[in-house]
């Protein structure tokens, strides 16, 4: 008969229809803004700028070297380097980005900026609730909207962030040790200098 398969199919849809009212586990839809799936660690959306605690203006790791701007394939990053230098989180004087804009309507989430950054200053975000009623201004993220803390970075990509933190801490320790050694060498040299006055200063003395 011609309608046999049709009736079978209609019984199936009817079973689904009533079943969805009876058993809740049939309904697999997540009610999105209220319920969310747990975040996947490897997820990425658009770049953000990492800040080491405190005031975001002060603590931004970015030193406006503009490597990411040059590497960005769709050219969605715009950086203006500052004229003066400001102390960074370690108290060292550095250039800083006077303007740092990313047009996320152009960004293709390739992560190349994060790969090339020598200062671990730009990383990939996971935030995707970025809908806006302004298609030009709303999708052009400025420095303030890009700045996010290192804690946030640790919370979204824990493994990666821990590795970065360890590396940065190691570098800092090395630098500190170097500085300390240099200072010691300097003070030793000064002592030597005081002991024997008409002697040439040591070559390669750290500044």
């Amino acid at each position: 008969m011609i309608g046999e398969g049709i009736l079978k199919g209609m019984a199936e849809t009817a079973r689904n229809f009533f079943g969805s009212y009876v058993s809740k586990d049939r309904l697999v839809t997540l009610q999105y803004p209220e319920q969310r799936d747990p975040q996947i660690e490897a997820a990425r959306s658009f770049p953000f700028l990492v800040c080491d605690g405190g005031d975001w203006q002060q603590a931004m790791r970015c030193v406006a070297c503009q490597i990411c701007e040059k590497e960005c394939p769709p050219k969605c990053i715009f950086i203006e380097k500052s004229k003066d230098k400001k102390p960074d989180a370690n108290g060292k004087l550095q250039f800083y980005p006077a303007v740092f804009n990313i047009d996320i309507s152009v960004c293709m989430s390739c992560q190349i900026c994060a790969e090339v950054c020598p200062f671990d200053a730009i990383k990939m975000d996971v935030d995707h609730d970025l809908s806006s009623d302004d298609r030009f201004g709303g999708l052009l993220l400025n420095k303030q909207r890009l700045a996010k803390s290192n804690e946030y970075y640790n919370s979204i990509h824990p493994t990666e962030a821990a590795a970065v933190d360890a590396r940065l801490a190691g570098e800092r320790a090395r630098q500190e040790a170097k500085a300390k050694a240099a200072a010691e060498a300097k003070s030793a040299a000064e002592a030597k200098l005081a002991a024997a006055t008409p002697v040439q200063p040591a070559i390669g003395e750290p500044r």
Binding site: T13, A14, N16, F17, G19, S20, Y21, R26, L27, V28, T29, Q31
Partner: peptide, 10 residues
């Protein structure tokens, strides 16, 4: 609504 429920959606 009906189509949704037939496909186990809300």
């Amino acid at each position: 609504k009906g189509l949704g429920r037939m496909q186990n959606r809300y």
